[in-house]
Design a binder for these strands. Structure first.
Lengths: 157, 157
DNA sequence: AAAGATTGATCAGTCAATCTTG
DNA sequence: CAAGATTGACTGATCAATCTTT
């Protein structure tokens, strides 16, 4: 399968990316925890549900794609958030298999309280170390890395 | 606590980094799993133990620092790897509280079989999308992001 | 049969408490 | 008591199997 070994540059980029992501995530989760707020995954769900056009709710499989979560992980995540009253499940008219997930008033309110903490952690981590031009450059390189051309690994063995 | 909000560039860099790390990790873990090899965390431990100077074993707390793992997570990870016979615990002469962890012959052998798969996934993911110069540039920016100046978040509330 | 979604069983991660030695 | 390390209890992730509707 793997007939080519990575360049030294690719290895260094990967190890740094893994570290930087881990550290940044720890800072964000730490800040949320200190503020007694839910974890980042809840923010991502609430944000997606608060977008224009999601007022009537969206289907779990749409969330699944937006957040790149496996379906079984999502079922239980939705359960937990719904039990807290931040989102609600509604029956779906067009497709009896699934339902619609919609954000509640409490959900919108919490989203508003989470952003200052989340954003503050990001500013203290990223903006404190990179200029705007550097951050833009970083984002551009990561976008290239995210281009979803099929890679050799995608071929079935 | 968070008195400054992040720039748009910082937010974009962070969201891309989270996605890129997730996707790259999934590819690596997927490749290892298809090859019926242990997860990446085992590789990291084995690699650390295979370095020059670790022939007699190293202390768990050293591993903890090298891999940025919490102590309780490490205890159980070591348990699992040791149960597979890839590493072994030895009593520590100088300090009766802890022991030394050393890689076994089987461990070295497995490490050698994991690298082609790990490296192949990296090449197929990173080198397939970035030039060497771009990967070097990415690594440099991430190094800046990893600079461990104290950030405002580190101050106690 | 395939798509959307959930559930049961199992495994790994987390937090606090604990134990031992320095 | 600090530091090094482990354990118990709980929460969260994962995989395969299942159920329903299209």
């Amino acid at each position: 399968m793997a007939d080519t070994m990575p360049t030294q540059e690719a290895v260094r980029a990967w190890t740094r990316m893994a570290r930087a992501q881990q550290r940044t995530l720890e800072r964000i989760e730490g800040a949320l925890k200190r503020a007694e707020l839910p974890p980042l995954a809840w923010y991502d769900v609430l944000l997606e549900l608060s977008r224009e056009g999601a007022a009537d709710g969206i289907r779990p499989f749409e969330l699944e794609r937006a957040l790149l979560l496996p379906q079984y992980g999502l079922s239980r995540l939705i359960d937990r958030i719904a039990r807290s009253g931040l989102i609600e499940r509604r029956p779906c008219a067009e497709d009896g298999r699934g339902h619609l997930i919609a954000i509640t008033g409490d959900g919108r309110e919490l989203l508003g309280r989470m952003w200052p903490v989340y954003g503050g952690a990001l500013a203290a981590t990223v903006d404190a170390r990179l200029t705007r031009a550097e951050a833009a450059s970083l984002a551009r390189l990561l976008d290239k890395l995210l281009a979803d051309e099929a890679s050799p690994l995608d071929r079935p063995a």
